[in-house]
Amino acid sequence: MNRSGISRFFTSFPWFLLSLPALLLVWRLAADRVDNPVLLPSPNLVAESALELFGDGSLVADIKASLQRVFTGFFIASTLAVPLALLMAYFLPLRQLFLPLVTILRPIPPIAWIPLAILWFGLGDKPSYFITALAAFFPIFLNAFAGGIDVQPRHVHAARFLGAGRWLMVRHIYLMSALPHVWTGLRIGLGQSWMAVVTAELIAAQSGLGYMIQANRINLETQHVLTGMIVIGMLGALMTTALGWCERFVLPWKFQRQ
């Protein structure tokens, strides 16, 4: 095998086929050593728990509840954040008015909003929508804003020389220049939103994966807690992968390297 062949083998080999069993093995050995299923249930126990929870339909219901909250919040956040950010990028007075507010609001973590969210919206879906939307808003906003100010004068000049009017200029130059950043923002926003939904459900909901984890912790059903955690991790990874795959259709010019 030549050099490039070797390096291709090393980069394309599905290494997780090694790392994943290794993790399971370490986990199994640790669980044997701890020998207390409340502190650390073994992988087998967690697998049984997963089958059980899938079987009685409760896990699927929780996944549905969480996903619905994430997508609702994410949808609200993106429909607000993208236009707002672009308007602020393009109009200086708006930027000077509102950017300081964003700067102050942004460092407040979504979890700090939960008390207010409960006071305003009670328990259930609504506070979770609020929290997931909030978590997604800032990454989407900041990236879209960066995209808005990233428009290159040379592209604007070129378009003006080619006779572009206002509307076509916005559509073909400004929005297209912003798109890669907006897309990055959406990707990060969805991830943040997914993490936030678990936080919100730990406290402010009666269903969903976060709630499920919390309830099982109280019942000392640690294997269910771990099942919930693993499902959260896998769904998050799935979303990231799916978005990464969509990118080639949204930003085709970023993918057509020679």
Partner: peptide, 8 residues
């Protein structure tokens, strides 16, 4: 300097 639209 290149002023082609990279997205087209």
């Amino acid at each position: 300097h290149n002023s082609l639209f990279p997205w087209k």
